[in-house]
Amino acid sequence: MAEESTRAWKDQYMLRLPDGMRDRIKAVAEANNRSMNAEIVATLEEKYPAPKPESRLISRLHHLIDIFDDTVMSDKLSNERREHMLSLFKDSIVDVIDRMTEDELARVRAETSFPGELDQFEDWPPQRWRSGGTGDAMGGRS
Score class of each variant (00 low, 15 high):
D119S: 12
D23R: 12
S35P: 04
E80G: 14
A106W: 14
W9Q: 15
A110P: 00
V94D: 04
L105E: 06
E54Q: 10
L118I: 03
F68N: 01
P125Q: 01
D98Q: 13
R99F: 00
L57C: 05
N37K: 06
S55R: 02
G20W: 13
D75C: 00
R141T: 12
G133V: 02
P126G: 11
G135T: 13
A106V: 13
T134E: 02
E3M: 12
D98T: 05
F89I: 05
D69K: 10
A29G: 01
M21Q: 11
M14Y: 15
E122R: 10
L61V: 04
I97F: 15
R7I: 11
A38I: 06
V72L: 04
M73D: 04
D136H: 05
K90E: 09
A38Y: 04
D91L: 12
L15D: 15
A137E: 07
R16G: 13
S35H: 07
D66E: 09
G20A: 10
H62W: 03
I58E: 06
G139H: 00
P115R: 01
L77C: 10
F121R: 01
E111W: 00
D66N: 09
I97N: 12
I93N: 03
D11S: 15
D75V: 02
P115Y: 02
E45T: 13
E102G: 12
L118K: 01
E46S: 14
K26Y: 05
M138E: 01
G139L: 07
Q12Y: 06
F68S: 01
W124D: 01
D11Q: 15
S142K: 02
E104R: 00
V96W: 01
W9N: 14
S74D: 11
V72W: 01
A137P: 00
L57Y: 02
V96E: 03
T101H: 09
F114M: 12
G139I: 05
G116K: 00
L77P: 00
D123Y: 06
I25D: 02
A29P: 05
V96P: 02
P53E: 14
V41S: 09
Q12F: 03
L44S: 11
I97L: 15
G140N: 00
E83S: 10
I97C: 14
D91T: 14
R82Y: 07
T134N: 02
R34G: 03
S35Q: 04
A31D: 06
L105F: 15
K76V: 06
W129V: 01
N33L: 04
A110G: 07
E39M: 04
M14V: 14
L118Q: 03
D23S: 13
R60N: 06
N79E: 09
E4P: 02
